[in-house]
């Protein structure tokens, strides 16, 4: 029994790491730029395909391809901020919502057209490998993904708390007007925030590829969990999103194990509702 619980927690924690990469990106953009990026899942999808083609065309290992997918997505993020989001920032909420929503639909349908809806899977040497610890199984690919996800989250935390640019981003997220008065260039800060958020999505894509099939709609599977994590962990709070993602992964896995395989999401949303009833601003809110 204990073994089953432990295995369920391990499974949940491992997938929670992936949720974290996606949700940290969403929450970072929301915190700094005050815009909800509905297209975050599609950027995960782009990361997956970049990784897939690097592997099949150049034989590059998915983990190594992080050095391509992250900078590439960073540049896309800067471009999206500079050419699209910047134009709607002064406007009210609707154009902002429609912009990222339209971007999501556009990327999705272009991918369907160019890449077909077929599934593409990578088989790496560690794709089907697992560590067996007593009766417990830890899949290697997921363990690597989790480890890298936690490492990237830690680097981001250090960046936000120790560098000038990081502090500027936090300042802009706390009060944009005051930050501007203090001499912070908001557009530079916003561009970096978008870049980092998308780079994290790209990392999620690369890390998923060894054990998850790529297809144009794949982003939507993960983005739903990411949005829940963002709300659960308090909007705009990076650490909150990380903790919420891991909790949700575990809750989902335990739900599947002990309630029913179709109630993973039910448990997650129950967790969300209860949290919101007790702490309306999410787990990381200061009361």
């Amino acid at each position: 029994m204990l073994e089953i619980v432990a295995q369920a927690v391990i499974n949940g924690l491992l997938i929670g790491g992936i949720y974290a990469l996606v949700s940290i990106g969403v929450t970072l953009i929301f915190g700094v730029v005050k815009i909800v990026n509905f297209a975050q899942g599609e950027f995960v999808m782009i990361g997956m395909y970049v990784t897939f083609f690097l592997a099949t065309q150049l034989g590059m290992d998915p983990i190594v391809s992080l050095v391509v997918s992250m900078p590439l997505l960073f540049l896309i993020g800067v471009g999206v901020q500079h050419f699209l989001i910047r134009r709607v920032l002064g406007l009210n909420d609707l154009p902002q919502i429609f912009l990222t929503f339209a971007l999501s639909l556009l990327i999705l349908n272009v991918a369907l057209m160019l890449l077909t809806p077929n599934y593409r899977t990578l088989h790496t040497s560690y794709s089907d490998a697992a560590l067996h610890l007593g009766g417990l199984t830890v899949p290697v690919a997921k363990l690597i993904a989790f480890g890298v996800a936690m490492l990237l989250s830690a680097i981001l935390w250090v960046f936000l708390h120790t560098t000038d640019l990081g502090r500027a981003m936090r300042a802009a997220s706390q009060n944009r007007d005051v930050a501007q008065l203090m001499g912070i260039n908001p557009h530079r800060v916003f561009a970096v925030a978008l870049g980092i958020a998308l780079a994290l999505a790209g990392a999620a894509g690369s890390l998923l590829m060894p054990f998850y099939p790529a297809y144009p709609m794949v982003g939507q599977v993960f983005v739903l969990m990411a949005f829940v994590a963002v709300v659960l962990g308090t909007l705009g709070n990076v650490v909150g999103a990380l903790v919420a993602s891991l909790l949700m992964g575990i809750a989902e896995s335990l739900g599947i194990q002990f309630i029913g395989a179709d109630s993973g999401l039910i448990v997650v949303f129950l967790l969300l509702l209860i949290t919101l009833a007790v702490k309306p601003s999410g787990l990381a809110a200061r009361s």
């Binding site: 089953i4 295995q7 499974n11 997938i15 896995s253 599947i256 029913g260 395989a261 993973g264």
Partner: peptide, 20 residues
Amino acid sequence: FEPYSAGFTDAGPLINKVKA
């Protein structure tokens, strides 16, 4: 005998259950 909701992110928990 177990229904699940299609489009899951991870089959681990389900297979864990099958194993048990």
